[in-house]
Write a protein that binds this DNA or RNA. Structure first.
Lengths: 148, 148
DNA sequence: ATTAAAGTGGGCACAAGTGGGAAAAAGTGG
DNA sequence: CCACTTTTTCCCACTTGTGCCCACTTTAAT
């Protein structure tokens, strides 16, 4: 399981160095075969390929005549791209994905259980701020009776 | 299964170079025999011919007295055209289809499971944006309880 | 302080993308 | 029916991009 925030950046070839603490388990779990895709919150999602496959299958099984479903397929499946870690544990982030998430210099890689999220640092901070402002009204009903 | 966004363009003969990562599987699956057709979202759909056949048969089996059905038949079957990949993995996009999808300089080819979509890049970005704006109300009910 | 391990950048070789020319095929008019 | 024009297809040469690998720098550990 992935967790924690790491600050990092793309080099001038658009490569992203995966932190060492994730590398070993990524190699073991999926041989360095990852899938990168777009998230509605305008960050990128980083999945080990075996974890991504069932999600894509589920999405592809839905009706393509429902416009919302279709849009979701376009966002998630359309933007998904296979990437391989190189010998130094780096992956290449394609220009369309960089553009989608507005990635420039300062990024954060955030562990989220079975996947990782890649954010432009400023957007990440913004996202956290936005949540704090809304906090009173924002406890999901699924968490009734649950405490930290 | 196809996935991911690739930026590309038509050359001045109207040819579209299919990215290498799709070529091999297209040759293997359908010998480079493709079907190009129009999508209601104003992009083009690219099917391996064997994947298209049953769709066309289904459409043709529907009642042509229902106006909506008839229109769908006209759009999809009417615009469908057979194309062959050349030795360099390129296909020719006919002027009527180019015009329909408003294809000019900057295009994207988007993997969508069993098929590909070809968009004018600007329209593709627009389509994604439009969806993100709607995101609160846009979780398809089929996905209740499903998470990324 | 020395050594090892990891991070970083860049060069090189090969593969893929691109454009154009020539030959064949199809279309058209006399 | 034949000759000429236009379009299409095939192929080759050139340019661009990508991935791989190596060397250098920095950090951490003993």
């Amino acid at each position: 399981m992935f967790r924690g925030v790491t600050q990092l950046s793309l080099d001038n070839k658009g490569r992203l160095a995966i932190p060492t603490k994730y590398r070993e388990s990524l190699i073991a779990f999926c041989g360095g075969h990852l899938v990168l895709t777009a998230d509605p919150a305008k960050c990128l999602l980083v999945y080990p390929r075996p974890a991504w496959e069932p999600i894509e299958q589920k999405l592809n099984s839905l009706s393509s005549f429902n416009p919302k479903t279709r849009s979701l397929q376009r966002l998630l499946v359309g933007n998904a791209s296979d990437v391989e870690m190189d010998g130094a544990g780096r992956i290449l982030v394609s220009p369309p994905l960089r553009q989608f998430a507005g990635l420039t210099k300062n990024l954060v890689l955030v562990g989220q259980g079975a996947k990782l999220e890649l954010w432009e640092e400023e957007k990440w901070n913004q996202q956290i701020e936005d949540y704090l402002v809304l906090k009173d009204s924002s406890i999901p009903s699924e968490l009734e009776g649950f405490s930290l």
